[in-house]
Nucleic acid binder design. Structure first.
Lengths: 205, 205
DNA sequence: CCTACCGATCGGTAGG
DNA sequence: CCTACCGATCGGTAGG
């Protein structure tokens, strides 16, 4: 009856994971101590080990949860044959923007701290990233063949797209001036119009 | 006569700074030990302190040398009245690309590790960055007024531009497939055409 | 530039 | 979930 130990533990575990994500982003993985995390959860550092195996485990969890979100979304996009390549790419870009807006802690940790993953996780993570990049390149190559996308080096376009959204880190500190909607539409406009074949020229003014 | 101690010390000091930049990029500031740096220079950790005051000093030097390079280039651009806003922005972008290609260690440290700068350096660095961003925004605003640049939120465009070039980090690991020239022209094409008013439409095919 | 060393802090364990 | 604690490593100093 009442609160089961299992449910309590589950909640505690989530609190630890959330605190870790926030601290890993703010201070970096190495500069974050187990005592920092414990303080934010309200327990002693030693008590953390009743919920987790190690500090590394927390990093692994965060990095692969993010990686999974991106690969899952890309796979789901494959089941929508009504979208052309440029629309597909725009959908990916919008998903990235939303992830950076809504899950800054986790996404930044996956981007900036994944290098501290222990083996074999580090290699696995990097390989997943490479596969993801290759899939996006293929979308662009198809878009070029079908005349929807200008002929620019697909690999370079992917690098620019995936990195450009990292700027959202700085937007988070100055939300006041630009709304989420403005941020998303401006970023999509800049990065998608930059590769569209026949930019919508309503009438060459 | 022969090699003066001063010259020897100067060279040693440069070796230390170079080793620090490389290690700070590869392992991060916190994960890099003074013993790591000393090993790469071929001396004992304690001996480093005959050349530097602290580990923090090494980070400061790297971060502000990079910041200086960018602000100096932007100021020099102000003395060229023959360039319009879009050309100015393209010149800035090309400079960023070259810095990322030629000085990866220092530029990445300035981007990824500057958060570990001690006060008041951290605040100074962030303020310099904000000023730099504001100046780029003004170039874009002028370009919009003069009809050279599409009407997109200047702040968002600046964020995308400054972040997109961070993708060059990954290019460094796979140089084989894409040359420096291809990288630069593809990236400039993508990011500049994305904000140009009347994209060069040779003939609406 | 080295040997010798310090106080602080780290991730993690023992035992309850 | 806590108290008590460990071995390792950290940035840095003393003294020569």
């Amino acid at each position: 009856m009442a609160k089961s130990p299992a449910r309590k533990t589950g909640t505690r575990r989530e609190m630890i994971s959330l605190a870790a994500a926030r601290l890993f982003r703010e201070k970096g993985f190495n500069a974050t101590g187990m005592r920092d995390i414990a303080d934010h959860v309200g327990i002693e550092a030693a008590s953390l080990y009743n919920h987790i195996r190690s500090k590394s485990e927390l990093l692994q969890e965060i990095c692969f949860r993010v990686a999974n979100a991106f690969t899952t979304q890309l796979n789901e996009l494959g089941n929508k044959p009504d979208l052309n390549s440029l629309e597909r790419l725009e959908a990916v870009l919008r998903f990235h923007i939303r992830m950076w807006v809504e899950q800054l802690d986790e996404v930044m940790v996956a981007n900036n701290e994944s290098a501290y993953l222990e083996e074999p996780y580090n290699t696995t993570f990097q390989n997943e990233r490479k596969t993801y990049v290759r899939q996006l390149e293929q979308i662009i190559e198809e878009g070029i063949r079908h005349g929807q996308i200008r002929s620019v080096k697909p690999y370079v376009v992917v690098l620019s797209l995936l990195s450009a959204v990292r700027g959202i880190e700085f937007w988070h500190r100055t939300k006041k001036n630009v709304s989420i909607a403005e941020l998303e539409s401006a970023m999509v406009s800049h990065l998608i119009e930059g590769i569209r074949t026949n930019p919508s020229v309503p009438g060459i003014s």
